[in-house]
Simulated scan of single mutants.
Amino acid sequence: MQRVDVIPSLVLSGYALGRIAAQDAGNDAPAAQWRVLSLLDQNGSRRVGELAAASRTTQPGMTRLIGGLEREGLVLRSPDPEDSRAIVVDITPRGSQELSAWREEFRDTLAPRFADLVDEDWAALTRAAEILAAHTTTEPTGALR
Rank of each mutant, 00 (worst) to 15 (best):
I66H: 05
E120G: 11
S100K: 07
S45K: 14
D90H: 12
L40Y: 03
V88N: 05
F114N: 10
V11G: 04
P140H: 09
D83K: 05
A129Y: 01
G44C: 04
A21P: 06
V118R: 15
L74R: 07
S78Y: 08
G26E: 10
E120V: 01
A21G: 08
A54P: 05
R77T: 15
R85E: 14
L144E: 02
L40D: 06
P112D: 03
G26Y: 10
L40A: 08
A143Y: 08
Q59Y: 01
Q59V: 13
M1A: 14
V89N: 05
L40R: 03
A52N: 07
D108E: 15
Y15E: 10
L51Y: 06
Q23Y: 07
A53W: 00
W102K: 13
A143F: 10
I91P: 01
E70H: 07
T109D: 06
P79G: 13
L10F: 13
V6T: 14
R64E: 12
R145G: 15
V11Y: 14
S55V: 11
A31P: 01
R113P: 03
N27R: 12
I91E: 01
W102C: 12
T126A: 12
I131C: 02
Q33C: 07
T137Y: 04
A134Q: 11
S96R: 13
P112W: 02
T57V: 15
A21K: 11
T141W: 10
D108F: 13
E130H: 02
L40P: 06
G95R: 07
A25L: 06
S38Y: 08
P8N: 08
